[in-house]
Design a binder for these strands. Structure first.
Length: 578
RNA sequence: CGGGGCGUAGCGCAGCCUGGCAGCGCGUCAGCUUUGGGAGCUGAAAGUCGUGGGUUCGAAUCCCACCGCCCCGACCA
């Protein structure tokens, strides 16, 4: 492939952690000289970082091609109108970078490409004979993130592989989805990443269902739960839970009774004042949902999950009501709301079904109600699972399991979109009977730059990066410890040439530096195979081959080194293929 | 947008409280010595102390405003 000399490239390593980095992968990417910050959420890829990035892209591209997807490249600049046409201009409005051209035409830098690709499909795919088709691109996306952070993890500008499938039927769409899902598993495995697939919320993308590919990491921005007994796993935004039978409280048949609870507004204060456990309290939250006011009931010890709530109520817009709205809707001040006697619709979390002897607000200042039986005392419009799942909750899919909470980095997301966009853009085809039908669509994203950083987050030690063989900027680094000695130079060159001819990228550390510096840099940069050429080993006709993942430093006859290294390389690459 | 922290040489930091010559370590450059896990000595280059205003004989230091970066939250494919 190619031979690079340290003295001729641009590799600047830092001894100290950068002041503005928090998580290991971000610190290491900067220390190893892979990236440099231009401004918040904007980074330059340095030569080594660029090489690693291209390797991730190459793997993703190969797996897309293998799955039959077709590469295209769409514009990053998009006219405003297409976002209005899909109805997402308002939803995505704040995350889009907007600008005008000199004709005052309004444009946006694409945060994603459903609109553009669906327009394309509408124009080009006209017959069932042309289906199915999956189109993809690897391109820079722009999002005005509220808070960019962790280096490439959440940046304003990042590289994404996005694919879009178009099918003639729902069954065929499921098949396209399955192909992408499997391509994703292969791609991440080849990158040396261990991923967990979870059921996910579709959010602003819409559609029927979706799966996220998560890299488990403490620094992950997403909460997920997984069952300790079965395969169930889900993003917390979506995660369900099972509802065990409730133990009745003593005297739970008593009639409701108002009690004075001066200044006790929060669950904690009321529970302490009445000396009862928080789970016996019912939280009553007043929400504005698409312009109407509703009451939401949740167990006192649980938080309402607005993603699940929005889905349950099929709501577009949802927010906690302000104090005036609460007073008008309940007749009482904030902190003392309860379901009894309300005229607005009341929705309750399923966990409350059958609860008797509960405590609620009385819709009156400093007053709560004891002995509440929701079925008897309140008018519940509907019961839904609308609270966050928590650690130790019972699994919703199997009888035996409990849910465990983890943190994850979302590196991929696949959506079954259905006809949301194809209807909006009239992306229709003629079937065998000459009938016009909307295409069924799916979309599939991989955060390429985020994937790269995730690899480091998942694979490093106290000395530096530990690259998987497949995406290391250079799989092999040859450290020439005495670049002044002709025989060391000669042996280094020969080995490098042999490896180059065998198809490996090689970096020669030819700097006039002390050995310790070279070792430390090689560890920091994480080359999977480190070869040392020195007078000492050369005296016996040998070189040293050390793997970044191993402690030992075996020597090998220098004439056999290239073959051995090639073998290690190939075995290692093979081990990453599913 | 709310809360907190930071901004001084390429990088990491001290100095600020209590105003008085702009400092340290690493890196960079030159020379000598050294050479298997971030070497030693000597010398050198390099700073609008984030920006603007104010107080003062005098401001990195005190006051006001703004900007940038980081963290927590809200928010978010």
């Amino acid at each position: 492939m190619s031979i690079a000399r340290w003295s001729e490239t641009l590799i600047s390593t830092l001894r100290d952690d950068p002041q503005d980095a928090e998580i290991p992968s971000h610190k290491l990417m900067v220390r190893a000289g892979l990236i440099r910050k231009l401004s918040g959420g904007l980074y330059t890829f340095m030569p080594l970082g660029c090489k690693a990035l291209r390797r991730v892209e190459a793997i993703v591209r190969q797996e897309m091609d293998r799955a039959g997807a077709l590469e295209i490249l769409m514009p990053a600049l998009q006219p405003r109108e297409i976002w209005e046409q899909s109805g997402r201009y308002d939803i995505m409005g704040d995350v889009m970078f907007k600008l005008q051209d000199r004709q005052k035409r309004e444009l946006a830098l694409g945060p994603t490409h459903e609109e553009v690709v669906t327009l394309l499909a509408a124009a080009e795919l006209k017959s069932y004979r042309q289906l199915p088709r999956t189109l993809y691109q690897i391109q820079t996306k722009f999002r005005d993130e509220i808070r960019p952070r962790f280096g490439l993890m959440r940046a304003k500008e990042f590289i994404m592989k996005d694919a879009y499938s178009f099918d003639r039927s729902w069954d065929a769409a499921d098949e396209s989805y399955r192909k992408m899902y499997e391509a994703y598993l292969r791609a991440f495995a080849r990158c040396g990443l261990r991923v967990k697939v979870v059921e996910a919320d579709t959010g602003a993308m819409g559609g029927q269902w979706s799966h996220e590919f998560m890299v488990l990491a403490d620094s992950g921005e997403d909460g997920i739960v997984e069952c300790d007994a079965c395969a169930y796993a889900a993003n917390l935004e979506r995660a369900e839970r099972a509802f065990p039978e409730l133990e009745p409280y003593p005297d739970s048949d008593k009639a409701p009774e108002q009690v004075s609870t001066p200044n006790a507004k929060t669950i904690g204060q009321v529970a302490a004042f009445l000396k009862c456990p928080p789970e016996r309290l019912i939280k009553t939250l007043i929400y504005n949902v698409d312009g109407r006011t509703v009451a939401i009931l949740a167990p006192g010890d649980r938080d309402v999950n607005e993603h699940k709530l929005a889905r349950a109520l099929e709501a577009r817009d949802l927010a906690l009501a302000d104090d005036e709205t609460i007073a008008a809707a309940t007749g009482g001040p904030v902190g003392f709301s309860g379901p009894i006697g309300l005229t607005i619709p009341v929705y309750a979390d399923t966990a409350l079904k059958g609860l008797r002897g509960a405590v609620t607000g009385a819709n009156r200042v400093d007053t709560h109600v004891l002995n509440v039986d929701l079925d008897r005392d309140a008018a519940i419009e509907a019961w839904h699972d609308i609270c966050f799942a928590e650690n130790d909750d019972r699994c919703p899919r199997c009888a035996a399991g409990k849910l465990r909470e983890k943190r994850g980095i979302e590196v991929g997301h696949v959506f079954k979109l259905g006809t949301k966009y194809t209807e909006a853009f009239s992306a229709r085809f003629l079937d065998e009977d000459g009938q016009s039908e909307a295409m069924i669509m799916g979309c599939y994203g991989i955060g390429v730059t985020r994937t790269l950083q995730s690899v480091i987050e998942q694979s490093h030690d106290e000395k530096g990066i530990v690259w998987p063989m497949s995406i290391a900027p250079y799989p092999v680094a040859i450290l020439n410890l005495t670049p002044g000695k002709p025989d060391c130079v000669e042996a280094t060159q020969t080995l490098a040439r042999e490896l180059d001819e065998a198809g490996l990228d090689v970096l020669i550390d030819d700097r006039d530096e002390r050995p310790g510096v070279k070792f430390a840099d090689a560890d920091l940069l994480g080359f999977p195979i480190r070869v040392v050429v020195s007078e000492r080993s050369l005296a016996g006709g040998n070189v040293e081959i050390k793997l970044r993942t191993e402690k030992a430093t075996p020597v090998i006859e220098k004439d056999n080194a290239a073959l051995k290294i090639r073998q290690i390389y190939q075995d290692s690459i093979k081990a990453l293929i599913l």
